[in-house]
Structure formats: C-alpha cells, structure tokens
Design a protein around this nucleic acid. Sequence first.
DNA 1: ACATATTCCGATTGAAATACTAGGAGTATG
DNA 2: CATACTCCTAGTATTTCAATCGGAATATGT
Lengths: 156, 156
Amino acid sequence: MKLSTRARYALRMMIVFARQSEGKELISLNDVSKEANVSRRYLEQLVIGLKNGALIRGKSGKGGGYTLARPADQIKIRQIVESAIGPINIVDCVLNPENCLKSDVCECRILYQVINNRITGILDSLVLADLVDGSRLNEAVKVLDTAYSNSPAPGV
Amino acid sequence: MKLSTRARYALRMMIVFARQSEGKELISLNDVSKEANVSRRYLEQLVIGLKNGALIRGKSGKGGGYTLARPADQIKIRQIVESAIGPINIVDCVLNPENCLKSDVCECRILYQVINNRITGILDSLVLADLVDGSRLNEAVKVLDTAYSNSPAPGV
DNA sequence: ACATATTCCGATTGAAATACTAGGAGTATG
DNA sequence: CATACTCCTAGTATTTCAATCGGAATATGT
C-alpha cells in the first residue's frame, strides 16, 4: 500500500516544471537532477510517461529541456500519478473482475472499489497548481474536508 | 499502490471466522485452507497478526481452531487490514516525517496525508459485519457516498 | 497413556516488482 | 562542429512479497 518513488519523483518533477514554466523557459533534466538529488538517467525514464501523457513537451538539442504542455491548473494530479505508475487499482479485480473467478460473489470487491474510487476522487479533484502554491492546496484540502465530513486533515 | 494478498487473505479469513462464529464453533486453518484454496502454512503466518491484534482467539489441540474474539460488528476493517500489513501509510513521510529532510517544506506531503486519511477513514467506518452481510455493506457504502458527494460508487 | 489434530514459532527459499545504472543514437544550437 | 541536450533500450541490483518447510508445544478423545 505504498505510493512508489516513481510517482513521487514524477510529482516533484512536475512541480519544478510548473515553477519554471511561469517564465516560459525550458528546464533540462540535468538541472532537475541536481535540484532533486536524483540521477538524471532515472529521471529520463520517468519523464517518458509524462511526455506520453501529453503533460509536458520536450525539446532536444543544446539549450533543450522540458516545459509543461498546458497550464498547471489544467493538469490533474491523477494524470501525473497515472502517467508514472499506470491506472490506479489497489486490487486487480477492481479493473479486471474477469481475472477473479469469484468476482460475482466476492464480499470484498465492493470495499476495494470504494477505496479505489476515493483515491482517484482525490487525485481528480486536485491540480498541479495546487501543489505549486501551498495556500491554494490548503484551500483545496479544506474544500475536500467539508465535503468529506469525517477523517479531517491533520494539523497542517 | 496495491493491497497485498496478506491483507486480502486476512479479510477472507475473518469473513469465514465470522460466519462460523454465529454457531460459536471453532474452525481450523485446515478447513479455511480448503475453503479459500490457500496453503495452511501460509494462513498460519497471517493469522498471527490477527491474534496479536486480539481480533480472534486460538485454541490448540485436537478439535481446536479459531473464533472471533468479539462480535463482528465491533471489528473494524481497518484493524483487520493493519493486523495483516501494519499501519497504513502510503508514503513513509506520512507517519515518519523525520525520515525526510524536506518534510517541513515538501509540497506533496499534505497530499499524501489527505489520501492516507481518506483510506483510513473508510476502513474505520466499515466493520466486519458489513462484509459478512452484503446488504449491510451496500447500506454502509450508500451512507459513505452521500457524505462523500463526489466519486460515487460504481454500479454494484 | 497415547495417537492425533491442531495451534504456534522461526527460518528459508522463490518469485516478482521496484529502483537504479549504463551505453549509445538522434537532435538542435550557438 | 563541439556541445548539451532528449530519446530509446537493455541490463543489474535491491527490496518486498508470497509461499514453503521442519518441528515444538498443546489439548482432545478414546
């Protein structure tokens, strides 16, 4: 039940790209690598997903780098995470019920689906711009918390 | 972002114990093993957590077996899952911020905490009795869904 | 008493996912 | 035309997860 480092690095990269994009400049993976203290080679792999998901644009050659493909408030957190680790499904049967012989009578399946829906729901309701701007995030979380009355956010 | 088989087997076992407990009889892991089609040896390991969590009671010797330590409506799903896989924390920094040098300025930490709280919230609000009785579960999910207005349950 | 069915405990192996490294081709720039 | 990048693909290392195994302790029924 862990969020992989792939997903976390992807989020951190996107935050860096978003900050840079305000100045419309390209930022290279070498720079991101230094800033995030993660090997460039590894980031290269993760960035492929973000590119395929059309969240960023890359430009080769000297002076090249990456930039957001669209404004940070139009990029859902879910898109970032799923670009990195694929579709969210905490148990295989949630997306592929045919893989489970008992899916029609399974007592737990509804539970798994509910959890899955909650997770994707949160990721859908937040955007990259929220992560970039702390106060925006706090606001978005507050909205979530009034809708989702139980389990309030921790003291942040 | 998967729920491990440990957790899933633990849930299935607890459902079996719950069904049997209505008749107050003990049920052996051999029987559970046959019913669930999982090796007894493996179930033995998983059952340790459930026992340490005081969710079930075991009795050794011939005719021995396990039974719920308390009524199924007083056992939260969260307790079952956490007995199997330990505390829910999708990212280490959620429970152990001191392990992350940047925890005080990390843009993502709030996000991780929110997701974590949602998951534990759901697991806290459902009990074993809900899983045992399908109609009870549907009811509980419906309640959750009206409170949590977005991301409705799938067509189940 | 004793064979038997069970829980209980710890160690080990096997398999798979994850994290990370590495080489090198292609591409634009100044 | 050297340079600084992206881009693509393969391989290795590490860790986590799943499952197996041997055997001691415990209670039961006969």
